[in-house]
């Protein structure tokens, strides 16, 4: 991520600062929603249920 300055559409002196990647992430509730559901689903639920599923069945 660079801090490059881009001119506005009119080409005037007013320049628009690029939004840092972290701020873009924090400003996107749906990306956060994806992360917030995916992380516990994989690390807690799926991993946990897979461990239970691999327990051998008693004869």
């Amino acid at each position: 991520m660079t801090d490059s300055i881009q001119p506005d559409e009119q080409g005037g002196a007013e320049a628009e600062e690029r939004i840092p990647a972290m701020q873009s992430l924090l400003d996107n509730p749906f990306l956060l929603l994806f992360i917030g559901v995916a992380v516990p689903t994989v690390l807690y639920t799926v991993w946990g249920v897979m461990e239970v599923a691999h327990i051998p069945i008693a004869n």
Partner: peptide, 30 residues
């Protein structure tokens, strides 16, 4: 708040710390 979004939910695992059949890796990581 981002740390909450990523990791707070994993704390559910502390209810299962003495359950059989689930590995220590899962318990300790979560």
């Amino acid at each position: 708040f981002l740390l909450y979004i990523c990791f707070l939910l994993l704390a559910s695992a502390h209810h299962l710390l003495v359950d059989p059949g689930i590995s220590s890796e899962w318990k300790v990581f979560n």
